[in-house]
Amino acid sequence: MKALWILALKEVRDGLRNRWVAMTILVLAALSLVVYLLGSAATGTTKADSLAVTLVNLVSLSVYLLPLIALMLSFDTLVGEFEQGTMLLLATYPITRWQIVVGKFLGHMLILLLAILLGCGLTALLIFLTSDNSPQNWAAYGWMMASTWLLGGVFIALGYSISAFVRERATAVGAAVGLWLVLVVLYDLALLGVLLADEAQAMSQQVLATLLVSNPTDAYRLFNLTSAEGVSQIVGLADVAAQAGVGQLVPVLVLTLWMFAGLAASIALLYRREI
């Protein structure tokens, strides 16, 4: 246990030193602030649902941005140590390889937590000071932050798998961008294409919902856009999800599953690799 903590703290310190933490906080704070200000401009000055509007816009933006941040944080972590030559020494210490992966993961998750709490929390504070919102929307906002963390965790774990698999950093960068493109952009486009082509409606609502929720980014969307009444009214996605019987539990399970699968794959790949 102690070794995990030491490895995690090293990642946090590295993150603080190379300004990763500061940059991520800044990006998330700027994003949520801009989203809030633009959102309230678009809806006029109605104070009522400013939080819900911000949440919806924030979710649709962070679904692109957060996987990117998480992958950039993680793609290098194992292959970088191999390339630099520090993995050899680390592997001779009395720690197992799964501890190396899990320790680093805990550290990166701490960095992400800090960034989300400060970045999105700042805007939440601003909204709190300037407008009235229902407790339900506040809860939804809190869940949004938590699920954003989980989404980040999924992509950190997937980034590790890439990092444990490839031989060179340059390959890892390419693979990370490819993964981002597939899961964040292409998957939805492909699904849309299938839907458009499927004129006879051979694909049931159930299959569609399953395909949708299996993708971690869509699971994240589904979870947040159906979370609060004020929110689901804006989006109208609740109907699709409700009809297909996708509650809030399934998206969370899907995200958790992806995260653990990514971690398990990274650990297995690292054990297979000769140091």
């Binding site: 090293k10 590295d14 030559g85 020494l89 001779t92 009395p94």
Partner: peptide, 30 residues
Amino acid sequence: RAALGYLPESIAFDEAMTGHELLKFYAGLK
């Protein structure tokens, strides 16, 4: 492995750390 000390042929360190930080990190792991 705690009973083993190893100096690799071409040793590489995390260059951004100070010597003291680095040694403390490895000490913790041992």
